[in-house]
Design a protein around this nucleic acid. Sequence first.
DNA 1: TTGTAAGCGTTATCAC
DNA 2: GTGATAACGCTTACAA
Lengths: 329, 329
Amino acid sequence: MVTIRDVAKAAGVSVATVSRVLNETGYVHEDTRNTVNEMIKQLNYSPNEVARSLYTKKSRLIGLLLPDITNPFFPLLARGVEDEMRLHDYRLIFGNTDEDAEKEQDYIQTFQQNNVIGLISMTNTLSKKVYQDLSIPVVFLDRTSSGYPSVFADGKEGGKLAAMEMVKRGSKRITLIKGPGHLQTAVDRFQGALEVLSTSDINFYVMSTTSFSFKDAETWAKDLFEKYPDTDGVIASNDIVATAVIHEALRIGKKIPEEVQVIGFDDVPHSSLLFPPLSTIRQPAYEMGKEAAQLLIKLMKNEKLQKKNIQLPVTFINRDTTRKVDEHV
Amino acid sequence: MVTIRDVAKAAGVSVATVSRVLNETGYVHEDTRNTVNEMIKQLNYSPNEVARSLYTKKSRLIGLLLPDITNPFFPLLARGVEDEMRLHDYRLIFGNTDEDAEKEQDYIQTFQQNNVIGLISMTNTLSKKVYQDLSIPVVFLDRTSSGYPSVFADGKEGGKLAAMEMVKRGSKRITLIKGPGHLQTAVDRFQGALEVLSTSDINFYVMSTTSFSFKDAETWAKDLFEKYPDTDGVIASNDIVATAVIHEALRIGKKIPEEVQVIGFDDVPHSSLLFPPLSTIRQPAYEMGKEAAQLLIKLMKNEKLQKKNIQLPVTFINRDTTRKVDEHV
DNA sequence: TTGTAAGCGTTATCAC
DNA sequence: GTGATAACGCTTACAA
């Protein structure tokens, strides 16, 4: 391993000088800078981040917490975070928490032990206190925790959009699937849709669910069509659930979108690959990840923020599980 | 921040003693051990990994390199790696390389700078030399690099299986899609299928492709049915490509599986959600991740290995893009 | 403009 | 059994 001493020796200067050119701090004569840089290149030296970190109590590492990388929504967010962080030379340590408080706690401890300088969390099972005790900035992504900076999509507007589009396209007996009550995003989209439906003269049925898992969703979808066989429009809590609904509808011989329309939420990558391709409310996941990274970077630099909470707009993606309508009406 | 000194002071001992109980190295009287542990708990002390790492030149960090976390196959592998690593108290730093040598190099440098103690790579764009210069063990996952330990699925057998199943189910004019030539896994599955087809009395058509991207695959699928309109069976290079084939077939009005059978490769999570649900050759991705982690751990402990290359079996998943057949025949 | 040296929080080698 | 203390590779006062 080549150290700063080796470079110093080779360049005929002291380690302090090498350090100065490395960090561009303090004066150093151009000639010496040149020879030092020359030696750095020649010896293929790159500074030991660990030694650096020990002294400065900082690092270039960011912690990333997410529920499950295997769930297709999160890789998009994670990728956004990573790409933005890479632009600024930060690197990520990540952990899947499975919404399990112990895992979350464990990873947070690791982050601290490694002098991680910032945390982006897509999960918040732990009490707020844990995050308060952290001495590093935290940004919540696709989640909120009161008082903390966060980046999320406009779920309420998304819910409204879904309901409006469904009504506009002629569904009269709508089923509204309510996602897990402990997830603010799920509640928001539910509230938005509820608001629109309850002020319309449409009949609707609310079905409460407790997870986003496909397995569970299959059961609920079955239930749905049994309890409410004449429903002609389903607003699902997300794309996974919507997929299960589509499967069940097709299975029992309902035509989509002629007899039942379906709208999902998220626009995960495979939504367009389904049959029929799923109409959905798109969250700009990759951009959300980038925004969260940018927000965290500002926080780490102690920059003043205009807003601590960034809400990104959602859009209706009109594919084939909703009927066509004359947009000029 | 509470340090080892604070604990030492509180327990009325020296830092050396605290270090000894921490690392369970050397003698320490049971009574003192108890008070030290007591103080550790009371002060909520946890050792600074950075300081540790500086001295020992080790860490508890593992580097994970993958092409793109957004591609549905990789999260499965990554999750397997993570879960196994977590069991052994290792944590992951990860990077998406996009098969880009510069990014790969960058991340590797970061890993070194942070005293990462092992590397699992699902990409190998770089010349072998780069990996040779590393002083840490490397395991390739879903990839191979001659001379390096690796974990991968039995692609050749998979290709054979796909071809055999397709023939058994009555396709007579098969199209075999050959994946990117620079990926050994793609080549293996192609060779396997080729071997079976060429020793059968089936007509077949080989179509060469250069990526696994859905966008590209859409074009190839179109081509396929134009150039070979009477094909009645497609062996795709992976599930993404298979999905594009299904879409195109459906679009031009071919019945699946009655007129065209399709078999994919990988069994990514959404394969079962497609319509029709995709028949495919399943790679045990999660298990592969776990195996890779276990292999790396052995390497890091300098344990002798029975085999450096672990090949996991693949299985045919018979869903609805292939016809039923009497299994007792 | 440059060098000396202290210090970051550990571990491990010696003495005792 | 335990305690001083050097060392890990770096940054940053402070001196020169």
